[in-house]
C-alpha cells in the first residue's frame, strides 16, 4: 500500500505531466531535498523549469502565485509548515479569495496552496498547529483535507484529490495535509476487512463512511477529517470490541464548502454526533458541523459533542503534547459519554 506521502507525490507528478501550466513554488523544493516533508521530491528533476524554489517569503510567493493564476497558469504553492500560512493570510483573504467575485466573475484563479498542519512530533507551539479553522469562513476560498482512504483502484485517494484540485480548480484552494498522516498507508476496502466502507459525496469532494463490519446499527456518528479520521477509525474498532458500543465514521475531504447531506442522513439513523478535530476547540470546524447538524435535524439530534485540542498552544514536551491533543482514548471516552 502506498503511503499518503507517496500518493500525494504521485498526484503532483500526474498534475505536472497532464498540464504544462502547472508550476510549484515553495521553500527548499529542489532535489535531492525535495521539500521539508518530501512531498515534492523528484519534481524539480522531472520539470526543472516549473519548480521554483523561493526565498523565505510566504506572502511574496503566494502573491506571485496569485498573479500567475490570474494570467493563465495553474500554480501550486507549498508552505513548509502550516503554521507559516499566517504570513500569507493577507494574500489569501484580501487578494486570492476576493478577486473572482469582486471582479464580477470576470477572472478565474486556479491556485492550490498545500501545507502540512498538525502536532505529535514535539516541534512545539509554532510548528505543530492545526490552523485551518482560521480559513474556514473566507468566502471564495475552498479548503480540502485528504483522507488516508481510497477506492480499490486508488480513486478518491490523497493524490487523486490533489491532482484534481490542481487541474480542475477555478478558484483558490487550501489543501491541508498533516505531518503524521503522511506516514499512514492509504487504506482501501481490501486492506480494512474489519470495516464496511462506502464512498459518497463527489469525485472532487469524496466522503468516506466507515463502520465495523457485521456490527449492529450504529448508535453514534463521528465526523472527522485528516489524521484524526485515522484515530477515530481505530477508536470505533476498540469501542465495538471492548465496549460493544457501535459508532460509524463520516470522513470529510472538503471542509469548505461543507456538504452536510451525507452526515445528516447518517444522523437521522443515530441521532448522536461527535465531531473530532486536531485544532483547538473554540470556534473550530466541529462548531460549524454541529451547528449545521442541529439546524438540519432539530430535535432528532439527541446528543452531541465536540472533541478537539485543548485551548492551549501545542507544547513541545511529549507528555504535555499528548495531554493537549485528542487521542484514541479521548474519542472512546467522548463516544461513551454520548451513549450513556
Amino acid at each position: 500500500m502506498p503511503s499518503v506521502l507517496d500518493s500525494l507525490n504521485v498526484g503532483l507528478h500526474q498534475a505536472f505531466d497532464a498540464d504544462e501550466r502547472v508550476y510549484l513554488l515553495g521553500e527548499d523544493l529542489l532535489d535531492p531535498y525535495g521539500g521539508a516533508f518530501k512531498v515534492s521530491r523528484g519534481l524539480s528533476s522531472a520539470y526543472p523549469g516549473r519548480v521554483w524554489t523561493t526565498p523565505i517569503s510566504e506572502a511574496g510567493m503566494v502573491g506571485i502565485a496569485v498573479g500567475m493564476a490570474l494570467r493563465g497558469l495553474r500554480p501550486v504553492v507549498e508552505i513548509m509548515f502550516g503554521d507559516f500560512i499566517t504570513l500569507a493570510a493577507d494574500q489569501i483573504i484580501n487578494h486570492a479569495a476576493k478577486f473572482r467575485w469582486m471582479y464580477n466573475d470576470q477572472v478565474s484563479l486556479p491556485l492550490v496552496i498545500r501545507t502540512p498542519m498538525g502536532g505529535r512530533r514535539g516541534y512545539g507551539p509554532t510548528h505543530s498547529q492545526t490552523l485551518e479553522k482560521l480559513f474556514l469562513g473566507v468566502p471564495g476560498l475552498q479548503v480540502l483535507a485528504p483522507a488516508a482512504f481510497a477506492a480499490p483502484d486508488g480513486g478518491s485517494g490523497p493524490g487523486e484529490l490533489l491532482a484534481q484540485a490542481i487541474l480542475g480548480g477555478q478558484e483558490p484552494l487550501l489543501f491541508v495535509e498533516n505531518k503524521l498522516q503522511y506516514l499512514l498507508p492509504v487504506h482501501t476496502p481490501a486492506s480494512l476487512p474489519e470495516f464496511s466502507f462506502a464512498i459518497e459525496g463527489t469525485p472532487a469532494a469524496p466522503i468516506f463512511r466507515l463502520a465495523v463490519q457485521g456490527a449492529p446499527a450504529p448508535q453514534v456518528t463521528i465526523a472527522a477529517y485528516g489524521y484524526m479520521a485515522e484515530l477515530a477509525r481505530q477508536a470505533i474498532l476498540k469501542l465495538a470490541y471492548e465496549h460493544e458500543i457501535f459508532a460509524e465514521l463520516v470522513i470529510f475531504t472538503r471542509l469548505v464548502p461543507l456538504e452536510d447531506q451525507v452526515l445528516c442522513a447518517a444522523l437521522r439513523q443515530t441521532g448522536r454526533l461527535l465531531t473530532v478535530e486536531e485544532g483547538a476547540l473554540s470556534a473550530g470546524w466541529g462548531a460549524e458541523v454541529l451547528a449545521r447538524a442541529a439546524s438540519a435535524l432539530g430535535l432528532h439530534l439527541k446528543a452531541c459533542g465536540r472533541l478537539a485540542a485543548r485551548d492551549l498552544p501545542v507544547p513541545a514536551s511529549g507528555p504535555l503534547e499528548n495531554a493537549v491533543l485528542p487521542s484514541i482514548q479521548d474519542i472512546m471516552q467522548a463516544v461513551r459519554r454520548l451513549v450513556a
Partner: peptide, 21 residues
Amino acid sequence: NGVQGGIVPIATGMALAEKQL
C-alpha cells in the same frame, strides 16, 4: 485592489506568467 502592498507580488507573478507564456 485596495490593500497596500499585496498587489506588488501579484503584479510580479503576472509578469512572470507573461514571460512563461
